[in-house]
Design a protein around this nucleic acid. Structure first.
Lengths: 350, 350
DNA sequence: GCGCTAAATGTTTACGTAAACATCGGTGTC
DNA sequence: GACACCGATGTTTACGTAAACATTTAGCGC
């Protein structure tokens, strides 16, 4: 007898709509809409009654209908190349928190390669899914910059790149950080600073390397050859072995903390003392950096501020959309030297 | 002359709709809809013509309208307590990749405290914003479990918790990992294994501690007092100092890699050799763990698999919604012992 | 060639909301 | 006291899509 009743019935308890609330409160649905959107021209008593009805029925606005009608999604898209780095993680955290604060949601699209094709795919996907703006986190990988142009239609903010005048860019002041690191070592009395660099395909790595070179030259020192790594501890370890075997090396600036960690491990293996024989400076200030052995002197990046600035710039664009399309800015976030125990003055040559 | 034209005109280049495509291709908009959704009953020639028109006009489906009409958003929400841990980041990465693979987007909501209030807020926010299902990543913090019930309406999958029969739960096999770590040390000949635990408010920490205790008891060993940390390197360092000063301690199992790192730093400071004097095992297998000094023996968690399973379980529920509401499962993901150089057999007492 | 079937396509409608416009009292001004 | 005006509320409409239903066309057996 119950054969039919056993079949799928009332699968999704239909959520109440404005019309239901309106009926319950004895007003028109437009009035419900006004209450829902906080418009001012509603009588206090009416508003209270509507709110009570909303509560009673468990009303929740339907974002799809709202977006369809208003053209706004209150969502921003984030395109990221990898979630595996400390910096991206922090940046994403800040973006999401800041967005929530402004009552926006964050839609995340990870992308495997930093190719124009993949970014475009993610971008058009976002524009289909419905976002009001896009933040692209280049992290450190190089796109074919010359061709980097997205179809128009959405406000875009780029983090960590030199995408130039096309888009608003938020970036850490890489040059400042590398200068701080190098000057710190020179200030301790080192006559030369060796550099374990990030890959040449990375904007930030290139900027750090250039700034290191410039700082040395400004101090009248001819920069030694650069040792290129790939951000990994292994590459730091490899170059650490090379440098640790030379007794004219007293100071190393690694382009990130992980390579610094690898280098220190190599120095330990060679029996060289850090900082007694060789000083090491990193870049990033990882959570664990102060627990490395020895605790690492490094350059702290303010990823939180990068995220906040990105959201702020993006929402400005979203609100202005159509007016100031060409108002692109470059926002720079400062770095900070964190001195710990991996650096010291060089030993006087015996 | 251009005064009026300078005013905001045509702010957003109106995106073409199905109707526009239909007109361009000389068909009805319903046919365009059918092509857009890949329905089979469209003539090949017509389909080609429609696709060509889509391309010509740059047509993109409007997700808001689609969601309004179909009730599906093709988006899943992720509630996370913090993006600052390695595990969460990895899990999120896997979730996002796996979701993209199934053509779903991910909407991310970070939550500051693990309170029911905050989770409910995030949950209702997601249900307003329009998602088809929710993944909640408890990470390691304890909710008031007794009261943890969300309003119905959305399929939910919980990661890393003992939320029990209410929801489908995906979890790493904490007990297995702790057992592997403890047995590894016992297998090397250690007579006792000390434990630096995570906070008692954490499910995973508690499970690891219990399993460590059970493993010792099964080996006929009376477990020593537990040293509770808070996952941080500092807490590991503090307990490391305590343990390193006792000469009856030969083996330490830390509940995560960061506490293991802190402990090893403390042992270095005390002049104790790792693993010569004391062996250390961690838990997580951080990216850098193999570059610690010495490279850390640890338990690898397969966060990628956790993310994949979560999406898989959730989409199963989304598709079945209304049928199997009560079909909640518990999915367990295996751990793996990674042996490096921080563990060795104990020195024979002199 | 007739009627039948099925495939291809068109037409109508509803999803929930919010803008635009319409209505209806009451209030202040002269 | 007539008029303009304003605030509160109701009515109509359109947003872009896709389900449901309707229509047309081609193919096929007899």
């Amino acid at each position: 007898m119950a054969t039919t009743e056993g079949a799928p019935v009332a699968r999704k308890a239909a959520r109440p709509s404005m019309g239901d609330v309106a009926r319950h409160a004895g007003v028109s649905s437009q009035t419900v809409s006004r209450v829902s959107n906080g418009h001012s021209n509603v009588d206090a008593a009416t508003r209270a009654r509507v709110i009570e009805s909303m509560r009673a029925l468990g009303y929740r606005p339907n974002s799809a209908a709202r977006a369809l009608r208003s053209g706004r999604f209150r969502t921003i898209g984030v395109i990221m190349f990898t979630l595996r780095t400390f910096g991206n993680m922090r940046t994403l955290d800040a973006i999401a928190s800041e967005a929530a604060h402004a009552n926006y949601s964050v839609m995340l699209i990870p992308v495997v390669d930093a190719t124009l094709e993949q970014v475009s795919g993610a971008y058009s996907r976002l524009s289909e899914q419905g976002v009001d703006g896009v933040i692209i986190v280049f992290e450190a990988h190089l796109l074919d910059n010359a061709e980097f142009t997205l179809p128009p239609g959405l406000p875009v903010v780029v983090i960590d790149s030199n995408a130039g005048a096309e888009y608003t860019v938020v970036d850490t002041d890489q040059a400042e950080g590398a200068r701080q690191a190098t000057e710190h070592l020179l200030g301790l009395g080192h006559r030369q600073v060796w550099h374990i660099a990030g890959p040449e395909t990375s904007f930030s790595a290139v900027h750090r390397t250039e700034s290191w070179r410039r700082t040395l030259k400004n101090a009248g020192i001819e920069p030694p050859p650069v040792l290129y790594g790939d951000w990994s501890t292994e590459s730091g370890h490899r170059h650490g072995l090379t440098l640790g075997r030379r007794d004219d090396v007293t100071a190393i600036f690694a382009a990130n903390d992980q390579m610094a960690l690898g280098a220190m491990r190599a120095l330990h293996e060679l029996g060289r003392d850090v900082p007694g024989d060789i000083s090491v400076v990193g870049f990033d200030d990882l959570e664990e950096a102060h627990s490395f052995w020895p605790p690492l002197t490094t350059i702290r990046q303010d990823f939180g501020e990068v995220g906040r600035q990105a959201i702020q710039q993006l929402l400005r664009k979203v609100d202005d959309y159509g007016f100031d399309d060409e108002d692109n800015r470059r926002v720079t976030v400062h770095t900070q030297l964190i001195v710990r125990e991996s650096t010291a003055s060089p030993r006087v040559r015996a």
